[in-house]
């Protein structure tokens, strides 16, 4: 893939969006990560926030130090000789998941739709590495993908009022884990005991944009041993 031509867009008086791509593709992430590193280095103390997401990076700079023209020039300069980050750049996580109808009701509905056993859905969800394209919705919530086309499932028409922490879900070709109990409309397949956002941890969030994640099926006993809460979905 040749180097993308960045487009710099005004989004607020102190914020620019750098648009690198037009479509979602895991092959874009090394470029996004490289741009992330280059912009962090170039802006340094004048950087307030930098938010990579799928095809863009939103750059919030300190407007008391920099004008917008200056900030644009710095972006152009920082991205002049962009080369994709290596595959090893992002960290790799293995997330143990207890896949079960009691904590993941849509495991069965997806299996039925495909005319396969739930075990087959589990195997296919665990089969590939997913890329964390962006974090949002809640602290530590990573939008990951892409799941196999056949598993793609639209969001629930009526979102649940309460999705328990650790719930693993699918929406379209994306997969995610709810870091804390919250409302949500994703199709839930199972639950993990892994804490995704831990205030006592150095960076709090387990995932960062660009990380790679693979799911691994475990049984109920292992899940409980790992500290998981097996309370069924409807009672949560």
């Amino acid at each position: 893939m040749s180097a993308p031509r960045p487009r710099i867009e005004t989004v607020a008086y102190d914020t620019l969006t750098v648009r690198l791509f037009e479509a979602i593709d895991e092959a874009h992430m090394p470029w996004i990560l490289a741009a992330d590193a280059a912009l962090r280095e170039r802006f340094d103390e004048a950087l307030i926030d930098l938010v990579p997401s799928y095809t863009t990076l939103m750059l919030h700079y300190d407007a008391l130090r920099l004008g917008q023209a200056e900030a644009r020039a710095m972006i152009v300069e920082a991205l002049a000789d962009l080369a994709p980050a290596s595959d090893r750049e992002g960290r790799h996580h293995v997330i143990p998941v207890w896949y079960d109808e009691s904590v993941g009701p849509e495991l069965v509905t997806i299996a039925e739709r495909l005319g396969v056993e739930p075990a087959d859905v589990i195997r296919r969800h665990c089969e590939r590495d997913y890329c964390a394209f962006a974090l949002g919705f809640a602290p530590g919530y990573a939008f990951m993908g892409l799941v196999e086309e056949a598993l793609a499932t639209p969001r629930l028409s009526t979102p649940r009022q309460r999705v328990p922490a650790g719930s693993v879900g699918i929406a379209e070709r994306q997969t995610a884990i709810y870091p804390m109990r919250s409302p949500g409309g994703w199709n839930i397949l199972g639950r993990t005991a892994v804490t995704l956002f831990d205030r006592s941890r150095d960076e709090a969030s387990l995932f960062r944009p660009g990380d790679r994640v693979r799911f691994e099926a475990i049984d109920r006993d292992t899940f409980v041993e790992q500290g998981g809460d097996p309370t069924p979905m409807e009672a949560s």
Partner: peptide, 26 residues
């Protein structure tokens, strides 16, 4: 495709009525 949202962003969902996103926005 989802992207970062700045303070004060005036977004327009399909119903055409703008929403100004403030401090606790996603």
């Amino acid at each position: 495709i989802s992207e970062g949202i700045p303070l004060g962003a005036v977004q327009v969902p399909p119903d055409g009525q703008p929403i100004v996103l403030l401090n606790d926005r996603q």
